[in-house]
Nucleic acid binder design. Structure first.
Lengths: 215, 215, 215, 215
DNA sequence: GATGAATGAGGATTCATTCAT
DNA sequence: AATGAATGAATCCTCATTCAT
C-alpha cells in the first residue's frame, strides 16, 4: 500500500503494551499464514503461540480476515516502498534494474515469510487483498512493463515480451523463498542461510544482467 | 512417480461406471485443490460439483487426504514421465534443455491446475506427498543439477550455481501458471489463452537459450 | 424363547450354502455383539470378518437389529431349554438346584459369548429383546422364586429372600464369564481355560450346596 | 485411583460457574454412560440434557473419551477409597469382610450408576480405563485374594479357591445394581428402592457370613 | 446370493465469533 | 486488555440402509 510506502520511522516501535501485543500477534500470524495459508491457519494456533486465549485476539483485530490483511499490509509495505521508488523514478533509473531486484531480495531475505505470503495470496487469486492494494499491484505491473520497455532489454526481447520478462523476474525472486522449506527436506540445504541468500542474490543479479544486456 | 513414467496406454479410459465417477471426482477435486489449496477445499464443495452427496465420495476414496494424494499422483505422472526421460538420458540430451522446458510447459498448459497444485504443495512444505514421490523429487533435483553441470551453461555459471539455475527455471515455468487467475484480474489478460501460452513457451525457450548459451 | 427350548436336533446343521453363510454371519455377529455390545458393533466389522460386503448381510437378515435378535435367540435357546426343563419340573427336582447351575455353566462354557451377550442386554435394560422372550424371562424369574421356595433353603433364608438368592446365583454364574477378558489382562489368567472352568463349576456347585443346605 | 483414596474434603463443592457446569455435565454423562454404555451414548444427548449445545461440552472436557474417563474416575474414587482402606489394613481387619461388602453396597446404593458403569467397562475389556486405574485394579484383585486367604474361609475353601470367592462376591454385589432396570420391567419391583437395598445388604452380609464361616 | 454405488441421518470435533466478567 | 463460557456453522467421516446389477 502506498500509505506504508514511506520507510518506517524509528519511533514506529510500539509504545503501549497493547501495541506490543498486537505486534506479537502480527508476528506469529505472519509466520502461520506464511506456513499454512489463510484457510490452513487457525486462530487457536496463533493465540497459543502468542500465549493468549483466542478471544484476546479480538481485542486487537476485528477478526481472522482483518488480521490476515493487517499481516499482509504490514509486510508488503516496505517491498512496495522499494518498488514504488523504482517505478516512480525517471527512465534513467530503469537502467539499473538489477539493483532493484537486489534490494527486493535483501528485503525478502530479512522477512522470508513475506514471499510465501505473497505466493499463497497469488495462488488463491488475491481474493482477500484490499481494493487499494489490488489497484496498486495492477498499476505496478503496468509500470513494470513500461519500465522494462524503457530498458535496453526492450530492443532485445521486443516490447510485447516485457510482461513475460516481468513475470519471470517476479517468480525467480519469489519462488526461491517459497521453495525453502521443501528444499531443505529434499536436498538438505537451507536456502535461507546467509551464504545461500548471498549467492542467490548474485545469481539473480547476473541473470538480470544477462537478460537485460543488449544482444 | 516413476511408476507412472510409462506413457498412459490408450485403454486407460475408465471403463466401469465407478471408475468414471472416480475420474469425475478427481477432476473436480483437482480443480478445487488447485484453486483453494488442501485446507481451503471442502468435500462438501467437491461433492456438490460432482453432483453427489458427500458420503458417496467415500465409496471411491478413503478420505480427503487420500483424494488429494490421488489427484496429485494422477496429475504429476505425465510431468514426471517427461522429466524422468530427460534426467535418465545421457549427457548428450542435456544439451537440449530448452526442449524439455518446452514439453513441460506444453504439459502444464494442458492441465493448468497442475502447476498450482504443485505450488500449493511446495508452499506447505510437501507434507502430504508420499515418501516415494518425495524421493523422486529429491533425486530429480539432484539429477537436474548434474544435468545442468553437463551443459555448456556450466562453464558460464560455474558448477556450484547449478542449483540456482534449476530453481530459477522451475519457478519461471511454474509461477507463470500459478499467477494466471490473479493476473487476469489485475491486468485483464488471460495468461492461459493459447496465444499467450505460445508466447510464454517461446519466451522461456529463449531465456533458456540465452542463459545456457556459452558466454 | 420357548420355541427354541427343544434341544437342537442333529439335522439342524445348515444345508444350503445360504444357510451356511447365515450361520457364519451369526457366529461372527455373536462374537462382535458380545465383545462390543449392540451400539459398539458395526456391520462393517461383521461383514469384514465374515469375508463379505455389507449389503450381503441383508440377504440373510433384514437389518442390524434383526441380526442381533437372531444372535440372541440362537444363543439363548439351549440355556432356556435347560432352565425350562428345570422350572417346569415338579418340586422334587428342585432339590437338585446345584445340578442345574452345573449344566448352565457347562453350556455357557461352551459359548462364552453368551454370558456377555446377556449381560450387555441386561445392562441396556433389555430394550431389544422380543416381547416373547421378555415374557419368558419374567415367568422364569417368578418360577425360580417358587422353585427356591420349595427348596430346603427356604427354611434357611426365608421365602421373601428367594429373589435375592436367585439373583445372586444368576450373577455369580454369568459374571464369571463376563469378567474373563478383563481378568486375563489384569491377572494374566484365562478364566475360560478348561481347568479354570472346571474349578469354577465345582466352586459354584459347592456354594450352591452351602447356601441351599439346611442350617 | 489411590489419589482419590483420601476422603473428599468438605470444600470439594464446585465454586466457579464453570466448575458447576462441568459437574452437571459429569452427572448427566454418568447417567448416560451407565444407561447406554460408551458407544451408545451421544454427546448430543448429553448436551441436550445438560441444557447446552454440543460445542460447549468441549469447553469443559477435551472430548468424549476424556469425559468418560472423568466420569469413571470421579465415580470410582470413593469405592476405591473404601476398598483401599480394607485391603491395606492388617490381617485382623480381614475378619470383617462382611463389613466391607456392606459399605460398598451402601456406596453403590447411593450412586447406582456406578455399578453399571463398572460392568459396562468390564464387559468391554477395560480398554478405556487409565493404566493407573488398571494397575490399581490388578493390585486390588491380588490383595483381595490374599485377604481372603487370611480369612477362616481359607480353611474351608482352600487357598486356591480364593479368586473364585472374590469374583463371586464381586458379581453378587455389582450384578444386583446392573440388573435393576431390567428387573423392574420384568418383575415390576424396584431393586433400588430403599427397602430392597436394605434387604439385599442384609442378604449379602448373611451370604458372606455363611460362606466365610468355618465349616 | 453377492456387490458396487449412492445416500439420509447422525457421529465427534473444530472454527471463528460473541459477550459478560 | 484478557478470558471463561457459550454457540452456529461447518468440518471430516461413519452408520445402517437401499437398489440396480
Amino acid at each position: 500500500m502506498p500509505a506504508a510506502a514511506t520507510p518506517a520511522p524509528a519511533e514506529d516501535r510500539p509504545r503501549t503494551k497493547g501495541e506490543q501485543t498486537a505486534e506479537r500477534i502480527l508476528d506469529v500470524a505472519e509466520e502461520r499464514f506464511a506456513e499454512c495459508g489463510y484457510a490452513g491457519t487457525t486462530l487457536r494456533d496463533v493465540a497459543a503461540r502468542v500465549g493468549l486465549r483466542i478471544p484476546s485476539l479480538y481485542n486487537h483485530f476485528p477478526g481472522k480476515e482483518a488480521l490476515y490483511v493487517a499481516v499482509l499490509e504490514r509486510g508488503l509495505g516496505p517491498v512496495l516502498a522499494v518498488l514504488s521508488e523504482y517505478l516512480d523514478a525517471d527512465a534513467e533509473a530503469y537502467r539499473d534494474s538489477g539493483r532493484v531486484v537486489e534490494r527486493v531480495i535483501e528485503l525478502l531475505a530479512r522477512r522470508p515469510n513475506l514471499a510465501r505470503l505473497i505466493q499463497y495470496e497469488t495462488l488463491s487469486g488475491g481474493g482477500r487483498i484490499s481494493p487499494a492494494l489490488r489497484d496498486w499491484m495492477a498499476r505496478a505491473f503496468a509500470r513494470a512493463h513500461e519500465a522494462v520497455e524503457a530498458t535496453p532489454a526492450a530492443r532485445r526481447w521486443g516490447r510485447e515480451r516485457a510482461p513475460f520478462l516481468v513475470l519471470a523476474m517476479y517468480h525467480m525472486v519469489l519462488g526461491y523463498f517459497a521453495m525453502a522449506p521443501l528444499y531443505r527436506e529434499l536436498a538438505g540445504e537451507d536456502l535461507l542461510a546467509d551464504e545461500m541468500l548471498e549467492r542467490q542474490k548474485r545469481f539473480v543479479t547476473d541473470v538480470v544482467d544477462t537478460l537485460f544486456a543488449e544482444a
